[in-house]
Structure formats: C-alpha cells, structure tokens
Amino acid sequence: MKDTEVCRRLLGVEEPWTVTRVRIDTQARELHAFLDRGKGWFNRVLFEQPKSRWRHSNLGAYKAFVHSSLQDDLSDEDRKMPFIGQPGSEFTTGLARKVTDCLRSGLRYREVCELLEIDVHLAWQIRHAIQNGLFGREYTGLADRMTLDSPDTADALVPPASDPVWQFLLESGRMLETRLLSLRLLLTRARQEFPQLEDDVARSIRITEIRRFFVKHRHQLPSELRQLRALREEGQEAKSS
C-alpha cells in the first residue's frame, strides 16, 4: 500500500478528497499530509491558490498537519470534514472537536493540551474559535472553562489571526523595525498582495502565515512583538476615537 493511501486511511480522508503527498519530518516528529479535492493535477503544484495548513490530532508519536487549498465551491458539509479546518485557522475541525470531547469528559484544559501536544498559541486559537461559536452556542461554556483554567496571557502571546492588528499592520503602511530578512520580505509580499486580494479567505490565509512566522520565531522577535502590541493599541485607539 502506498504511503498516501495509508495516510488517507489514518486521517479518515474520504472521496472526493485525496492525499497527494506525505512528508515525514523525523527530527520534529511531524507528519505533513497534502490534500487535494477532485481530480489532482498530477505532480503539478498550483501555487496560485492560497494554501492552508492545519494542525490535526496526532498520528501515533507524530504531530499531524494537513495542507490544502479550499475551493470556493465547497459545500457547508465539506467544510465540516474533520480532517480540514477553516481557511484562516490553524487547526482542523477534528482537532478542535477532540479538545471539546476531552474537556467534556472532565479533563482540565492544561491536561488536554499536554495530552494532545498542543502548544499555548494553538490552544488559545482553539479556545477563541470555540468561544466564537465554532460548534454552536452550547459549547461557549466550555470555552469559559478553558479561560478560567488558563488565565489570559494575551500580552505574552502572539495575537490570534482574528485580531485586527494584522490587518492594520498590512494596510496602514506602518513600518515594523526588524533585522530579519525573511520578515521584511514576508511583510513586503503581503502588503503588495493584500489590497488585490478579493476575498476574506485569501486575506485570512495570508494573515495566518504571518502569525505563524511570529509564533515560530517568537524567541528572536521580542522587539517586533513589542512593536506589534504598540500597533495593536494604536489601532484600538484609532477605532475608538
């Protein structure tokens, strides 16, 4: 059996979805599955379509990540598939569901994070989504429990993708002083593209990428994170005045 087929079964991926490629990162203990829907394009990578990357439940000792582009014509049913997530989010619906199941069975929030190997940044995103009604209003109480269990450490964290600071960063033209070439280029590309992106999905994918950069390099970016917080306050003040 091909590795893509094994992966398809482990992830519970069903037609018309297919696993086109699998990459194992042994050093980081990560499995990356690349999904397509409908007819694939053989080995051709269609880079023009913005691609999302979601953390899924672990497969054995490996953290699983799913990569795919979501077409506009997806039905609501398709969008709820457990092995994918919302375009601007960083986790699959299946992982968020697992978090709520664990919480409902009595585990504390921190225990759930440890059990599922979710870091504080991702946990915060999931909590935020549940709070905003990902699974309906009856689950918002769970999110409140998560808040009590894990006091809000927003100042120490990278703001969630839904925070207006990201849009403000990309649209206001404000400079972010940084020595990292990668961040300079990433911001330049996003600022060039942002006004031309017609739909919110493409914009949220770009914001998620920038946020992912900040999470990944947070230890090297204390000054940039301070600037981001200042920008956030500035944006809030501008909005309220």
Binding site: R23, A28, N43, L46
Partner: peptide, 12 residues
Amino acid sequence: DTLPGFLEDAPE
C-alpha cells in the same frame, strides 16, 4: 512543474 512545491519538502 514541481519546483513551486520545493519548500513543502523542507523540514519545519
């Protein structure tokens, strides 16, 4: 055809 995906082969 495959070059656009080359960084998907790179480790995290």
